[in-house]
Amino acid sequence: MDFSELFRNFPELTTTGLTQGAIYALVALGYTLVYGVLRLINFAHSEVFMVGTFAAMWTWNALGFNQNLSPSGVLISAGVLIAGLLAAVAVSSATAVAVELTAYRPLRKRNAPPLAFLISAIGASFVIMEIIGIATDRAPYGNMPELVSNKPLFTILGAEITPVQIVIVVGALVMLVGLDWFINNTRLGRGVRAVAQDPDSAALMGVNKGRVIGLVFLLGGVMAGVAAVFANLKYGFTKFNLGFLFGLKAFTAAVLGGIGNLRGAVLGGLLLGLVENYASALVGTQFRDLVAFVVLIAVLMFRPTGILGESLGRARA
């Protein structure tokens, strides 16, 4: 236990925690959306995120930029960043929908027991992970240009703020507010909430359940794609099994905030990012990956519904 470390670096830990938390929150939304509608933990979501990180990297490489050649000028950098973002979003959401169509929909048609969905999800997760693993020789891949500067821009209360952190936190907030607005104010969003509340009644009232489920996977994929690009910016490399730990943490975030609850996922993500950073300052960074797991067990034991309570439908019906 090293409290002096914690207090000395408190502002720094807070900003990095929030940045990391913003990425967790984006991935957590994917778990929460699917859970809210299907009461199903989409195990393969971690791979949806992982695929996005590779899609963005490869797009940047295809545009001719790599670790030795970064684009010059803000406009070109932004353009390249957005190209990678679009690729990641496209690939991630396509993967998410493909998982739904191949691994889940056939099981729903057969009214399979809940266990079958989980097993099929594990299978899907492994297939995606192994395809990328075989394609990349299971090596870390970090051939990415510097698109957003990692140099400190200014200092608040002793914490150095970098442009990467600003891009991630602001970008994540925009996505979160956008998703919240979409679910609460559009016709499609109303459909999602209706199915989350009561799938059978919603279907009887004319909501196309199959389409809503597809939409939910698509939205989760979009969020994961954005998160993937942010993760690339922050960590600078990716790996075929990156999704596993990340997914576990994002899932923890979703449970912490109350799975099935959109705002809960955001709150849970940010909190987890902070807790993880503070705790790893206390107990040593080599155990940082265990923090999320301990948080998960603690939440499940003492407040399984999470901070804001479980439910997409009930929270804001």
Binding site: P113, S120, V127
Partner: peptide
Amino acid sequence: TEYRYLIFGLVLIVMMIFRP
């Protein structure tokens, strides 16, 4: 050994659909 996890991942999906 390189492909077996991929194949058994596929096996899990296919088994759940056609012969759970």
